[in-house]
Design a binder for these strands. Structure first.
Lengths: 252, 252
DNA sequence: GTTGCGAAATTGGTCAATCCAGTGTTGACA
DNA sequence: TGTCAACACTGGATTGACCAATTTCGCAAC
């Protein structure tokens, strides 16, 4: 597209060369010439194509990698990120650290997202999404004495609900916010409390969704997260909210 | 789940030099030695400090800039992003384009977020957050014949509600998702429909929040977004969802 | 003909030195 | 005392080279 002359403010006719790389890839993706898993042209070719130097190309690719769009493997090439839609937790982590987000605030945002997701999941009532949720619930009951493994099932259960909402945007958001909580939860879960009751709550949420009762699903999820928030608050009292995951840019 | 060896997930010890830069900045932020608006050490010094070359430092800084953590001004320096907490729309735009998010899906996620925000705003009932909302509503009624300006007030109203939720995480999420919609909305709003009715709906939302009636606030916001979704669907029929804003990394 | 292995080509990762382009400061001059 | 031009500083970008991981492919052995 040609530069539109009606630009309200700062005349950015001179674009940053690094952004030019990002925009170029964006264009290729937009046009469908590049999809998840695809490999893009080598840095050197890209450099000559765009008429910029290789370090510049690399800068743009680093930016894309930071946004979770690409992954580079030395010797192999640079690829568009495959797998399910994901938003890295990095940006949120930085925001949390910079502005001192409270754990309560994070939990509140999570509550909004997951309560909505649970409601949608119940409304949709997709049968094939129920099995994964049920499996994680039984997994919880089976690991009441193993907090670490229990937490894994916990995480997966909540992800399964978000997935059952059948909305990838919501799923990505839920995972982004949740990862902020879980990352450090791993450390404190050892002296956790009342895993039995926690498993029961999850079961009730599952049943509500299975029964296609959105209102009950929302209510159960709401009280569950409220209790979880209180429980975690008692586990660790005043740790700062901005805790960075072990790998900032992209983690599993 | 035995993944093939190319997709394993534990190269923790292997540190990319660029990531080292990111991590270093993250550490400084975490320790409170760097806050919003602060200026970073010059690239050259940073390079010698970390024992890497300057291009490597630049790569890391580009990654940070892509995450919205830093901003660089030629000749001045690199600064930690100031202002209110923001999540760039870039990552979500790419995700939308890559995975073909539907406009309906985006609206649905927005609905979850903004309905929750409206509810919280009504629960909180912070007096000093009401004025901005009221102002935007009157602004809408004053520009019923000027769709472009009307849209500006529309955007600001929704942002004011998210701000009134008094949860910066929620605010950041709302803005991130909303920006996906608004960016292209600008183009189609010319032949918009029923600005009067739209303004009325916004007024009802405002009144519900002002009356500290969370349930009504949620309901009004819900039907408003539902109608807005339908309206926009009729404006433009089948455009792809992945439309990139004019400036990918950080917009005004 | 098939298989195994290793050398070579490919590709990303890094470094060094150099120049350019804005920005801010400072000190000389009016 | 006030102005403004020169200068040091900082990010932006380039060229060229080398290293390391991966892939590819041909050659030799079976």
């Amino acid at each position: 597209m040609p530069d539109n002359k009606t630009r309200d403010e700062a005349p950015l006719l001179e674009i940053q060369s690094a952004d030019q790389v990002v925009r170029h890839i964006a264009l290729l993706i937009e046009r469908g010439e590049l999809g998840p898993g695809d490999r893009l042209v080598p840095e050197r070719e890209l450099a000559t194509e765009l008429g910029v130097s290789r370090p510049t190309v690399r800068a743009g690719l680093h930016a894309l990698a930071a946004m979770g769009v690409t992954e580079s493997r030395q010797g192999a090439g640079t690829f568009i990120t495959g797998g399910p839609p994901r938003l890295g937790a990095g940006p949120l982590s930085f925001l949390a650290a910079l502005h001192g987000f409270t754990r309560d605030q994070i939990f509140e945002a999570r509550k909004v997202l997951e309560v909505g997701a649970a409601g949608l999941a119940a409304e949709r009532g997709l049968a094939d999404r129920l099995a994964p949720m049920a499996e994680e619930v039984t997994g919880m009951f089976a690991t009441l004495t193993d907090p670490q493994t229990f937490l894994v099932h916990d995480v997966r259960f909540h992800r399964a609900i978000a997935a059952a909402s059948d909305n990838p945007v919501l799923l990505a958001l839920v995972e982004m916010v949740s990862s902020l909580v879980y990352e450090q939860r791993r450390m404190t879960v050892e002296h956790a409390i009342d895993l039995k009751e926690s498993a029961e709550m999850h079961r009730r949420i599952y049943q509500a969704i299975r029964d296609r009762d959105p209102e009950r699903a929302r209510a159960e999820m709401s009280i569950h997260l409220e209790l979880a928030r209180a429980a975690q608050a008692s586990e660790q009292l005043d740790l700062p909210a901005g805790v960075f995951p072990s790998k900032v840019v992209g983690a599993s």
